[in-house]
């Protein structure tokens, strides 16, 4: 199926600025950093994942990452693996995740990045997927296993759909590659704060500040940092260095412990620490 242009409800097109970047910049203008929570569609169940999106927006999240579960999440640690596995067991699908977003969009305008792996999208059809995602109200797309340059055809199709293609950079990324990755990306750059899979960690690496400074010389869009951020102190620390803070596994831990309400309170504590 070929899609000539995105639907009229799409929040952004190639000529207009990115709602995602705008959300980060509006924090940056106030000397703050954006809070970007990851929510797994269908976990703990469909309705509660939708409630999580609302709770996150209420807690002051600036951009939401909505994860579409995949059976083989090889970049994810045990927490997100378990959540995606549960969500799939409860019957979550690509279409189901888009439905959650669509429902959220009826009342909220917080920018949303769809976060998944390439295969479910490829199987759905990239053109068809980005059109459906845009019409459901998505602003961005992050495909963990589609690194810059891996498949110009698929990447082109993704970019043409009117979504910001969120790019990842890692501590291992060669410096000469950084600009190229940055150029092709939209919204923000997601910097992986350490090698490894997703998951809450107690320690952050010392080199982070220096690395982010080095990236800023090569990249003009905002830089968010994720992987391993689990406490208000860490969020404040990373928020002081980067333009955005992504929190995933720790948020899933919070919902396991305290339900949607507990997750909302956790995000509020991060927001307060970051603004304090």
């Amino acid at each position: 199926m070929t899609v000539s242009s995105q639907s009229s409800t799409t929040p952004a097109d190639a000529a207009s600025p990115s709602r995602i970047a705008d959300a980060l910049r509006s924090r940056m203008d106030r000397g703050q950093s954006a809070l970007i929570p990851y929510i797994c569609a269908g976990y703990p169940d469909r309705d509660r994942s939708l409630a999580m999106m609302h709770a996150a927006a209420d807690a002051g999240a600036d951009v939401l990452e909505l994860g579409i579960p995949f059976s083989d999440p090889l970049a994810d640690g045990p927490t997100i693996q378990r959540a995606t596995f549960e969500a799939l067991k409860l019957g979550m699908t690509v279409q189901g995740a888009l439905g959650i977003l669509e429902e959220f969009r009826t009342t909220r305008d917080t920018p949303v990045v769809l976060f998944t792996y390439l295969n479910p999208v490829h199987h759905f059809g990239m053109d068809r997927f980005v059109a459906a995602a845009a019409s459901a109200g998505a602003d961005g797309l992050l495909l963990t296993d589609l690194p810059a340059g891996a498949d110009p055809e698929l990447e082109g199709a993704a970019a043409r759909g009117g979504l910001d293609l969120i790019r990842l950079l890692a501590p291992t990324t060669a410096l000469e590659r950084v600009s190229r990755v940055g150029e092709g990306g939209g919204g923000f750059i997601y910097y992986i704060s350490r090698t490894g899979v997703t998951g809450a960690r107690t320690e952050l690496r010392q080199e982070l500040a220096r690395e982010i400074e080095a990236l800023r010389e090569k990249i003009s869009i905002p830089i968010a940092v994720g992987f391993g951020i689990s406490t208000p102190e860490q969020a404040a620390l990373v928020g002081g260095l980067a333009d955005g803070v992504v929190v995933g596994s720790a948020l899933l831990d919070a919902v396991d412990e305290g339900g949607v309400e507990g997750a909302g309170a956790f995000l509020k504590s991060l927001r307060e620490a970051m603004d304090g």
Partner: peptide
């Protein structure tokens, strides 16, 4: 800045 372009083809082997 912030305009979306098609990603530049990386080193394609």
């Amino acid at each position: 800045m912030l305009t979306r372009t098609d990603p530049a083809p990386d080193r394609v082997i």
